[in-house]
Every structure is written in structure tokens, then in C-alpha cells.
């Protein structure tokens, strides 16, 4: 939850990508973030090769063992290897993050485009809808939707995605309006291009930069929200090794087998930090004015 507050106006980019990359490389934290994110992706892809055990395999001879050479993160109450479960959890975290942001950005882009393009009543309705969405705390809305749909990962992804698209819509709407009012449109019309094509052609490149920033900053938010929903019992259900569910599963043992709940928590923190570093870096690189300050 969070970390995207500063990102409300990432500035309109359009700067050549080489410059952006160079700036990004000079930002040490962004490099660290990029390394973390790449490592996460690799971990998710190669989970079966990295994890020393089957994440679901129960071993009644090794219950609640503290971290050791055999079990780096210890074992849980059913003798499952916590390290392997955390490794497999990477898959769920990335899946959730990417899927949620995909829903948010598609919904946001469609509604934002419609709002800016059609204007008038459509704009008024969609703006009103955004007002409504903003009045309900996102987590509460996601909870209500997940509660209505019932638990499970896919329902949770849907619930979070449907709750969090407003920023994307605002972004696209702003761009569309900016282009619409510009003189381009007259010129392009004269050439005989249809309205929406022109707008799309100009809006798309202008929104790529902020979209990248938003995406990298919304993925960790989605991961945190998902963990909260799982913790409250409305998200992923154990034995799925989703990190929030792992914490929920291990919380009863926190006082004497801390590794079960602490390790997945650390995994969440590292992941969220990695994406935030990278997102901050992108923002700074895409908007030189802000880069100077931070």
C-alpha cells in the first residue's frame, strides 16, 4: 500500500530512451532496484531448480525446525521447507502484481480515453465514477469485492484490479484532453485522419513514460494489498505459497518459530523495495526536473 503518492505527476516524457537509460544507470538505487526485479523474475521462472524441496512436501520428522544448512529458512508446522515455499511464492507475487496492474491499466486507459475523447456527459459520468471510487478506501473496496466474490487468487486479483484503476484513467484523460485542444488535431483532420486515430497516435507515445512509472510503482502496491487480503482470509488460501498466506499460516508460531512468518515478510519487503527503487529511478530519469531534487 502506498509509495505511489509522489508519482501523481510524473511529468510528460518523450525524451529519447538512450538518455533515460543513461540517467537510470547513474542512479545507484535504481540499479539496485533493477537487479532485484531481474532476480525476482529469474527466481520465479527457475523456481523448481532453485527450491531444494517440493514446496508442498510434508515431513513429519522435521517439524518447526529453525533455519539450518538443510533448511535455510527452517521448516513449518507440517515440516515443509520455508525457503522453497518463499521461492515459489515469488511466482504468485509477480503474477498478482502484473495481473493487477494489467487490469488497472486497461480499465484506466479505456475509461480515461473515453472520458477525454467523448467529453461532455461521458466525461461527467466517468469523472463522477472516479470520485465515487476515491471516496471508498481502496483496500476496503477490494475487501468488499473479494468478500462478495469469495476468496481465491483470481478473485483477489480481480478485486484489487477493479478497485485501483483511477490514477491510470486520470493520466490518460489528461493526455487526451491536452492533445484534443492542441492545434495538431486541426492539421491532422485536414489531412483526413479520423479523430480517435490521431488522438491515439499522439496520446500513446506521450503516456508511455508515465505508464512505466505507474506500473513499477503500482506492482508493489498490488503485492502489499494482496498480502493484506490473504492475511484477512479473503485472498490466496493456504496451502498456496502466496507470501501473505504464508504469513497468515505462520503467525501462530511467531513467538517460537518466527522464521515461518518473518521470512515471507522479508521477501515482500525486498520485492516492494526493489520495485520502488526502480520506479523512483524511472520517474527521476523521465523527468529531469524531479531528478535534480532527489
Amino acid at each position: 500500500m502506498g509509495a505511489m503518492g509522489e508519482a501523481t505527476t510524473p511529468g510528460v516524457g518523450g525524451s529519447p530512451w538512450t538518455v533515460v537509460l543513461r540517467r537510470l544507470r547513474r542512479n545507484q538505487l535504481a540499479v539496485v532496484g533493477a537487479i532485484i526485479v531481474v532476480a525476482l523474475v529469474l527466481t520465479a521462472v527457475f523456481a523448481p531448480w532453485i527450491a531444494p524441496y517440493d514446496p508442498a512436501e510434508q515431513n513429519f520428522d522435521a517439524l518447526l525446525e529453525p533455519p539450518s544448512r538443510d533448511h535455510w529458512f527452517g521448516t513449518d508446522d507440517l515440516g515443509r521447507d520455508v525457503f522453497s515455499r518463499v521461492i515459489y511464492g515469488t511466482r504468485y507475487a509477480l503474477l498478482i502484481g502484473v495481473a493487477v496492474v494489467a487490469i488497472e491499466s486497461i480499465l484506466g486507459a479505456l475509461l480515461g480515453f473515453a472520458s477525454g475523447y467523448f467529453g461532455g456527459k461521458v466525461d461527467a459520468y466517468i469523472s463522477r465514477l472516479i470520485d465515487i471510487m476515491l471516496a471508498i478506501p481502496t483496500l476496503v473496496l477490494a475487501l468488499a469485492i473479494a468478500g462478495a466474490l469469495g476468496g481465491g487468487i483470481s478473485n483477489m486479483i480481480l478485486a484489487i484490479g477493479v478497485s485501483g484503476w483511477t490514477e491510470f484513467a486520470r493520466l490518460v484523460r489528461g493526455e487526451v484532453l491536452a492533445i484534443r485542444n492542441s492545434t495538431y488535431i486541426e492539421a491532422a483532420k485536414a489531412v483526413g485522419l479520423s479523430d480517435w486515430r490521431i488522438i491515439l497516435r499522439h496520446v500513446a507515445p506521450n503516456t508511455v513514460a508515465p505508464f512505466i512509472v505507474y506500473t513499477t510503482l503500482y506492482i508493489p502496491t498490488a503485492i502489499l494489498w494482496a498480502a493484506s487480503l490473504s492475511f484477512l482470509g479473503l485472498g490466496a488460501q493456504p496451502p498456496t505459497p502466496e507470501w501473505g498466506a504464508l504469513i497468515a499460516d505462520g503467525r501462530g508460531y511467531l513467538s517460537f518459530a518466527w522464521w515461518i512468518a518473518v521470512m515471507p515478510g522479508v521477501a515482500i519487503m525486498v520485492t516492494v523495495m526493489g520495485f520502488n527503487f526502480l520506479g523512483d529511478g524511472f520517474r527521476d530519469a523521465l523527468d529531469p526536473k524531479m531528478a535534480r531534487q532527489t
Binding site: 518447526l64 503467525r251 508460531y253 511467531l254 513467538s255 518459530a257
Partner: peptide
């Protein structure tokens, strides 16, 4: 919240409970 209930029993204010979840018995 079961973990909070267990923490309260171990070193907090709660004296007795009939609601600790099965997975907290070991703790």
C-alpha cells in the same frame, strides 16, 4: 486474530481461553 490471542495468553492480559486454534497448541 489467533496469533494475538496466543500472544496475550503467553505474556499478556488474557488468563484463559477456549478458542486457541489447533495449530497454536504446539506453541
Amino acid at each position: 486474530e489467533p496469533s494475538t490471542l496466543v500472544a496475550e495468553l503467553m505474556s499478556g492480559e488474557v488468563d484463559i481461553s477456549f478458542d486457541v486454534p489447533p495449530n497454536a497448541v504446539a506453541a
